[in-house]
Write a protein that binds this DNA or RNA. Structure first.
Length: 309
DNA sequence: CTTGTGCCCTGCCAGC
DNA sequence: TGCTGGCAGGGCACAA
């Protein structure tokens, strides 16, 4: 169900097509993981592609990972150009400009992209902003500033992106793809908890805390289980569960956990389908046992003590 | 090489 | 009621 393309249309048309709340604030999601970032990328594509940028501003230089380091030079990178492609790799957004330069963004914990009108009030925690010649505006907001942003010349390597592991929604992703979760490159067995390994972006791209817990629930594997105790034969099922949970969430526009500020925001609808994440003390939807929370490598994982072994 | 720890940052909320 | 300390987490630097 692809959204209608809005390339080149006027802001009023985009607004009419998406509804009033959309233009004000439709691209939000707490804790963006693969499905959330993919949703954002798709919606951004439909609205901002091919619009000419009049002016760009960098308001939070601490997020900026690459040169230029002055406001004027930042603006020069964008003024008069257009975004011709917007892609996703793992949790990274890659905006391609018509001169081949690429703007690469990571949303961290609280990053958002909001589309509004030039005259609208600037949101709090604005990190960068792109004003289009037709009056649309793209605001990049990040409350906790755990995100990052950088620009890369055509063909220049993007180190963080290059280091990413396989994409779980690619067709050839399967149990064999997950073998590095159990064995390191020198052949020795990994000992870390499987949940911790699923969060390692070098081993698999795009999975964060929510979908690691959810995929392990579906697989019947406890998050704290050492990779040493898993068999290669367990991996095909795990791969299938990862794919399923990501696909299902993507279909519903991702998961919105806490959007305390904007009640009128369009939230991702996957939250209602969460089986374990953020459900500590609540009954398992499968067996009624109480969901538990465990801390692993500084992150919290959720599981059902009865359904997961 | 692998694995673990602490830091970045802000808003929320339990506890006083 | 109002303040405060602890907590949350993706990615990275650093130590062992």
């Amino acid at each position: 169900m692809a959204k209608p393309s809005l390339w080149g249309c006027r802001p009023e048309e985009a607004e009419a097509s998406f509804g009033a709340t959309l233009i004000s604030n439709f691209l939000t999601s707490a804790m963006p993981e693969l499905p959330e970032v993919e949703t954002i990328v798709r919606e951004l594509r439909a609205v901002i592609l091919q619009r000419t940028i009049r002016r760009a501003r960098l308001l939070r230089a601490d997020l900026w990972a690459t040169p230029p380091h002055s406001a004027a030079a930042f603006n020069r990178q964008f003024a008069g150009k257009r975004f011709t492609q917007i892609n996703r790799r793992g949790k990274y957004l890659i905006f391609v400009l018509n001169d081949g330069q690429r703007l690469v963004g990571h949303l961290g914990m609280t990053g958002k992209f909001l589309v509004s009108r030039a005259a609208d009030k600037a949101p709090d925690h604005l990190c960068s902003q792109y004003l289009f010649t037709d009056g649309l505006r793209l605001d990049h907001v990040d409350v906790r500033r755990f995100g990052s942003l950088g620009i890369y010349p055509p063909d220049a390597p993007i180190p963080a992106v290059k280091a990413l592991g396989p994409e779980p929604l690619e067709r050839n992703f399967n149990g064999a793809t997950l073998r590095p979760l159990l064995y390191s490159r020198n052949g020795s067995r990994r000992k870390r908890a499987i949940h911790t390994l699923l969060l390692d972006q070098k081993l698999i791209a795009g999975v964060g805390n929510i979908y690691a817990s959810e995929a392990l629930f579906r697989s019947g594997i406890r998050p704290q289980k050492s990779a040493q105790k898993l068999r290669l034969a367990d991996l095909p099922r795990l791969a299938t569960c990862i794919k399923e949970v990501l696909r299902q969430s993507l279909k519903l526009g991702g998961t919105t956990i806490s959007d305390y500020r904007r009640v009128d925001d369009k939230p991702g609808k996957f939250r209602a389908l969460l089986q374990v994440y953020d459900r500590k003390g609540e009954p398992c939807r499968q067996c009624g046992a109480l969901i538990r929370r465990v801390r692993l490598g500084g992150r919290s994982a959720f599981y059902c003590p009865k359904c997961q072994k």
